[in-house]
Design a protein around this nucleic acid. Sequence first.
DNA 1: ACAGACTTTGCAACCGGTTGCAAACCTGCG
DNA 2: CGCAGGTTTGCAACCGGTTGCAAAGTCTGT
Lengths: 329, 329
Amino acid sequence: MPATLKEVAVLAGVSRSAVSRCFTEGASISPATRAKILKAADQLGYRPNALASSLTTGRTKLIGLISDNFHNPIFLEVFDHFTRGLQSRGLRPLLVNLSGETDPANSLRLLQQYSVDAAIVASSTLPVSFAESFAAAGVPVVHSFGRHTARPKVNTVGIDNQEAGRLAAKALLARGYAKIAMLAGPESATSTQDRLYGFLNELKSTSGIEVTTSFASAYSYDAGYAEMSRLIAAGSLAEGYFCGDDVLSIGTLAALQEHGISVPKDVGLIGFNDMAMSRWGNIALTTIRQPIDDVVRLSVEMVEAMLAGPREPKAHLLPCELIERKTLP
Amino acid sequence: MPATLKEVAVLAGVSRSAVSRCFTEGASISPATRAKILKAADQLGYRPNALASSLTTGRTKLIGLISDNFHNPIFLEVFDHFTRGLQSRGLRPLLVNLSGETDPANSLRLLQQYSVDAAIVASSTLPVSFAESFAAAGVPVVHSFGRHTARPKVNTVGIDNQEAGRLAAKALLARGYAKIAMLAGPESATSTQDRLYGFLNELKSTSGIEVTTSFASAYSYDAGYAEMSRLIAAGSLAEGYFCGDDVLSIGTLAALQEHGISVPKDVGLIGFNDMAMSRWGNIALTTIRQPIDDVVRLSVEMVEAMLAGPREPKAHLLPCELIERKTLP
DNA sequence: ACAGACTTTGCAACCGGTTGCAAACCTGCG
DNA sequence: CGCAGGTTTGCAACCGGTTGCAAAGTCTGT
């Protein structure tokens, strides 16, 4: 339907190369012909076909954006940041919803078929190997919210989950709690493992603390509600809880309230993420903020750097921060 | 990097056309050559280049997914449904974040350059003209959550906002309130206008009811909080409120609680959307559910139908439903 | 007016596929 | 064995662009 380069060339009375050059940054073309071409193009409503040109240039400006998290509200913020960041650099996000799939083969094939210039894996739960198989197939990739390693095989922007666990432990210790617990997310998620590790490690250094751990089946309200209900029924609540995620915390909070257990009077609670709604007055969750704007910004910058040329994979590790609200005394 | 059709042809000892046919549904090819080609393709890790083939076939299977709403948690649910629905049909969502832009020109140009097969405008706030300019440019389009018109110029899947307004009014009237108000979203949003219209219309039929209306500056927590705070300060609260959106409701709720005004004892509240978190125990918002799964399903079906061939634009109008929880007595 | 240097232009080949057409290949049948 | 009919195959042109190369054009200085 839209006009092609050839039609513009005919109308402007020049060769196809001239038209092509007219729309290529820094190509050699005289002001006179450029004006002629622009006029003709405008008249026909011509738009260069990005896909056709990608065939010869080898660049599509398409970036695969892969995620397995379409349920946690924090990810709407993540998508907002990513789409804006990519768009402002002239890149186009091709969105892939993993929806439970953990094998990279399908999404890899798909993104290869569309010759994306790079891929972003946005997930705190997928194993390192997921992003690595993109790199192995020659697709430049950055793993956002991925696990930090000293010698990364792929570009990674992660947050310091261990340090976050320590931060949470310190906050609970500071309240003088003797019975402290973590209500973690799915045991298989790398982020869960790291937060738990840091948490336990910090608690080890203080003696006389009783520590327990349990795992929710997902980073979700229902999972948090279910797990806390189970704990209440079992009858052995801790005094202070570190929840592996804000949504999980809110489910936990609901279960506690339902049983007349007051937060923070009877039980203290600390979440993780600082999603927009944790700030809301009726929730007011004390939590650990992860700098998603920085994670996304650095990720997009890494994508840009990779497009500019091959480079050694790097790993960024970003610090988290305790945000005090009303679920800890 | 990935192998090309030509390389497969050489390795298999056949012509390029043969290879092409091997990967084209329903093309004429003998089992023997097909086996040879498959073996060679497999050996080279060949993946047909979707973009190159789009050049001749005129189909990219790319679908522009345009939204201006990356802040309301309900839209994460929307994106989840859309991406799954499109993917399951072999279509690929190219995501466009309008981020405040209301002129379709840029996104239209962008999607034309990537020769998307169709576009989905997912927004309850954009004017009808937005989607129409896509149609005018020859890009098949469906406006999801768009305003219903009897003679639509573009495919539309919308919800019955007027009926929803009436539903809310009836629910408030049923509580015997005499002072009833709507705390609506931005005045410019078509969804706001329609909900308000239905709401006021229903109230007209009962005499002796005092009705007021105010508008929040956005469909957001902060806007709801601010507007309700203003109303409280002004000192003339109604007995029952219909809020134009759930997030707005939660902001409203927070402002009320903060001033020691009890919901639903002192003031009744009814929201709109039934997003996942409205169900959460600590919020328990009485609200009007919009069937986003149906909206999305029908939208994707319409996209599919448009791809199959040109057709008259249709408009679906889907009913909403009152969900009773704890913010109305 | 002309050599030399630099800029602008068009030709033609190419990117990775698809497809109409006609030739080559199979069948089965008389 | 020859032939009609259908099936499989390759040729070559095409989709909408880009780009190396050499020819053509412009400008400068003398």
